[in-house]
Computed example of a mutant assay.
Amino acid sequence: MKLYIVRYIKLSYIPVNSLDEATTRITKESRKNPGHDFVEGIMYSLNKGVIMVGSFTPKAEPTKINPVARWYKKSFYKHVQDLSQSAPTVEYIPLRDYYHRHTYGAFWTLEILVPYANMPVMRWLFGWTATSETNWYKLIPAFFRQFSEKNVVLQDFIVPIGKAKMALEFFHKQVEIYPVWLCPSKSFNEPGFFKFDENPDTMQLDIGIYGVPKNLDDYELVKSNKIYEQKFNSLIAPVQLESPHIYADTFLSRDEFYEMFDPTLYNKVRKQLNCEDAFPDVYEKISARI
């Protein structure tokens, strides 16, 4: 048995030029056996994006090493967007840089409040300050924070990967926010919070929607988010709103929320550990109080 130190991720960038190509490619790469260590995608429009597949490797071609998380580097999604216009490309990314590829500017949300965040001078002089820490957020004037809280969509939805096209078309019609993050994950038929369909051992796709809707006149914080959740619950079921992340609020009632989940085991453990009176449950943690 050979042991080696993993130092890099060998990352392949695969441009896609249609929604069908994007959903077909990410499904194919996610289901490969043996599979990749990492698979993700970024869509820059309904028909343009990049699918990325990565594998651990102890060595790298020196001319293809790219430490993407350096403070002076442009945001990772901007780098990927540049590659969307080229042929498939391979880079070797140092392991720590890969894990922090979306740290600078918290994916692409920093530019909502700081539009010049990706200017070369800004990155070189102040790039080291733009981490994913939320402390800097407290320094932003209240007016801008209120704008962000009322007009920015920050939601993740998990859908069966076979229904990814339907989900992406729905969000394009509702908010037309880009980029959109795509992250596949495997579901397992084991007790837990997730509700399974008739074929539980399936591949799911996390769709990350982070940004300002193209037409703000049609967006209303509570009403619009409730429509998104109800639409997914009724038409694309089974669907899981990614509730463990505290940035993703839910605007549903408690009964509506738990239609998407199976809290049986969760409630049993809370009762066994005497948590019911000590800690709020998942719904109370993420229920938006507007």
Rank of each mutant, 00 (worst) to 15 (best):
I161D: 00
K163G: 06
M166V: 11
F170S: 00
K173M: 09
Q174V: 10
G211I: 03
N215L: 08
F188R: 10
H172R: 04
L168V: 06
N199Q: 10
K165I: 06
I209R: 00
I177G: 02
P184Q: 02
L205I: 13
M166H: 11
I209L: 05
H172M: 06
G208L: 05
K163F: 12
D217N: 11
D218E: 15
P184V: 05
D206K: 12
I209D: 01
D206P: 00
N189L: 04
E190R: 10
L205Q: 05
Q204K: 11
I209Y: 04
K226Y: 09
I161H: 01
I161Y: 02
H172C: 08
L216A: 02
K226Q: 14
F188T: 11
G162P: 06
F193G: 12
S187H: 09
S224T: 15
S224N: 07
Q204P: 04
V222P: 07
V212I: 12
C183D: 12
K226R: 15
I227P: 03
M166Q: 14
D201S: 09
A164K: 01
V222Y: 12
K173H: 14
S224P: 08
E176R: 11
Q204L: 15
G208Q: 03
V222I: 15
I209M: 03
M166E: 15
G208K: 01
F171C: 01
V212S: 01
I209A: 01
E190N: 09
Y228Q: 04
M166P: 00
E190T: 14
L168Y: 05
K226C: 09
S187Q: 10
V180Y: 04
F194P: 02
K226A: 11
N199C: 08
L205W: 09
I161Q: 01
M166N: 13
G162Q: 03
G162S: 05
L182I: 07
F196M: 13
P213Q: 00
L168T: 03
H172E: 13
F196L: 13
A167M: 02
K163R: 12
Q174H: 11
Q174E: 15
F188Q: 11
N199F: 10
V180W: 03
P200F: 08
P184N: 03
V175S: 07
I161N: 00
L182E: 01
F194D: 13
Y228F: 15
M203K: 05
V180P: 02
P213T: 02
K226D: 08
E198L: 06
Y210V: 11
K165E: 07
L216T: 09
I161M: 03
P200C: 07
C183N: 13
W181F: 15
E169F: 06
K214C: 08
F193L: 15
H172W: 08
F196D: 14
L221Q: 06
Q204D: 12
A167N: 01
F188L: 12
A164N: 03
N225M: 13
E220C: 10
Q204R: 13
E198S: 10
I227K: 07
S185V: 11
D197R: 02
G211E: 00
P200H: 06
V180H: 02
V175W: 08
F194W: 14
P179D: 03
F194S: 13
H172I: 05
G211L: 00
L221N: 06
K214M: 10
F170M: 02
M166D: 15
K186T: 09
T202Y: 08
E220R: 10
